[in-house]
Amino acid sequence: MTYRVRIENADGEVVTIEISADELREKGLTLEELLPPNARIVEVEEVEP
């Protein structure tokens, strides 16, 4: 499974990243732990691999 994640950074700019569930598991991280300081998740969407 892959996630498309929209993130708002500290400057108010919204960027989109895609990350797979396998990648998260391998790194032992959650989506929140990948965020840079002062950023927030705006939207998470599951996409087909």
Rank of each mutant, 00 (worst) to 15 (best):
27 K>E: 04
30 T>P: 08
23 E>K: 05
7 I>S: 01
36 P>E: 09
15 V>T: 13
29 L>V: 13
7 I>R: 00
32 E>R: 08
18 E>S: 08
7 I>E: 00
35 L>I: 13
44 V>L: 07
49 P>Y: 14
31 L>W: 06
19 I>L: 04
25 R>Y: 11
18 E>N: 10
30 T>L: 06
2 T>Q: 08
38 N>S: 06
40 R>Y: 13
25 R>Q: 07
46 E>K: 11
44 V>A: 02
42 V>Q: 05
13 E>D: 11
14 V>R: 09
48 E>W: 15
2 T>G: 07
23 E>L: 11
30 T>E: 06
27 K>H: 07
49 P>Q: 13
9 N>K: 15
20 S>R: 10
16 T>H: 05
13 E>P: 02
20 S>K: 10
43 E>W: 15
13 E>T: 14
27 K>F: 06
36 P>C: 01
1 M>H: 09
15 V>Y: 15
39 A>I: 13
6 R>A: 06
32 E>C: 04
2 T>V: 15
30 T>W: 03
45 E>H: 09
47 V>K: 04
36 P>Q: 05
31 L>A: 01
38 N>F: 12
21 A>W: 09
16 T>Q: 08
33 E>F: 06
14 V>W: 04
7 I>W: 14
12 G>W: 02
31 L>S: 00
2 T>P: 01
25 R>G: 06
2 T>D: 05
31 L>N: 00
46 E>D: 04
23 E>V: 08
49 P>A: 14
10 A>C: 09
19 I>S: 00
8 E>W: 07
38 N>E: 09
49 P>F: 14
15 V>H: 12
24 L>Q: 02
41 I>R: 02
39 A>Y: 15
38 N>R: 04
10 A>M: 13
31 L>V: 06
46 E>G: 06
22 D>Q: 13
45 E>I: 15
8 E>M: 12
34 L>V: 09
28 G>N: 12
37 P>T: 07
37 P>L: 08
16 T>A: 05
26 E>H: 10
9 N>T: 15
1 M>V: 13
35 L>E: 00
20 S>V: 04
30 T>D: 04
28 G>P: 02
19 I>H: 01
26 E>D: 13
38 N>L: 06
23 E>N: 05
46 E>A: 09
46 E>T: 14
